[in-house]
Write a protein that binds this DNA or RNA. Structure first.
Lengths: 166, 166
DNA sequence: AGCTATAGATGTACTATACAACTATCCGGA
DNA sequence: TCCGGATAGTTGTATAGTACATCTATAGCT
């Protein structure tokens, strides 16, 4: 293995390790900032906002969740008043999900808290590094459609996924 | 708000969003690569390897887990034969935890799988970007000692391996 | 009409987790 | 020397998130 190959391998390992650390932390703490909205709930609501309303199956496909999981999450969020179901005129099996004003509110609050937490971590970084980090993360998550670290690899019909997935 | 401020805010939001996406995916898929070792188990074993043996309380502090959670995880990993407890000569309340050969093996296998998954996602990236991404992630996770995303800030000896733990 | 695919809900089971209470041990005074 | 508080870990209990299998209703093709 050449030096360059070794360096590359070490960088990939570091990425793997650091992403894992982040995942662990995010998971452990997600619920503490806003106990009323877990990480999953947050991502589901965020997708509703981005998409302007979608079906439960879209949420399941997007996040690699089982439809039963989404069904229960949706019910909980509905009971909390954060989203509402509307009939889908073209398909009576499905229901369009939409954020309610309360859902929009809570989403904004949580987003703000999370933004603040991240901003704190980025305190002292130069603008170029912040911009570069954002760009690399976006590229990483957009990734090859062939599933990386557990990406969902679903055939998406929606090309805007790379931006909207949360 | 100036243009520059706006761009900075958008970058921070993107980081927040993309890290969240990653966390969601990692969590959803972590167990699938190696069903015998969850994300948490993996990180615990990895820390045992890095530290060359430590106490349960260190694992709890490092990952922001409750000691009861760690206690149960440790018991499960012990029953799987991946770690063993040794008495701590200087403190009879505590037990030093050490990887067994089987634990070392499985850890290497999972690390390899995860490495491969990440490498696949990074296919097509230039060496400089990979190196830069690794560096930024390390810096992000090392973070300000003052808790960002909810980090707890623990002091530890190995600067390379993630730091603060939340 | 009939067959199959799809959207979602429900029954069930399991894992990870936290918090509280408990045991055993350690340590710093008085 | 003994005691009270701190610490390491275990166990009891409760909860969330999740998957898989199954069920209902609807779509849509042939």
């Amino acid at each position: 293995m050449t030096d360059s190959e070794t360096r590359h391998r070490e960088a990939v390992d570091a990425i793997q390790r650091e992403m894992t650390v982040f995942a662990r932390r995010a998971r452990a703490f997600a619920g503490r900032l806003h106990p009323e909205l877990t990480l999953v709930s947050y991502t589901l609501l965020a997708h509703l906002e981005d998409s302007g309303g979608c079906l439960a199956k879209d949420l399941a496909a997007r996040y690699g969740l089982d439809k039963s999981t989404v069904s229960r999450q949706v019910r909980a969020l509905e009971q909390l008043g954060f989203l509402e179901r509307r009939s889908a005129p073209e398909d009576h099996r499905a229901q369009m999900l939409h954020l309610t004003p309360a859902g929009t509110d809570i989403l904004a609050q949580v987003t703000e808290s999370r933004h603040a937490a991240v901003a704190e971590r980025l305190a002292g970084w130069g603008d170029a590094d912040v911009a570069g980090f954002a760009e690399l993360l976006i590229r990483y998550n957009a990734g090859p459609e062939t599933s990386g670290d557990g990406s969902i690899t679903q055939e998406y019909s929606n090309p805007d996924i790379t931006e909207t997935v949360r």
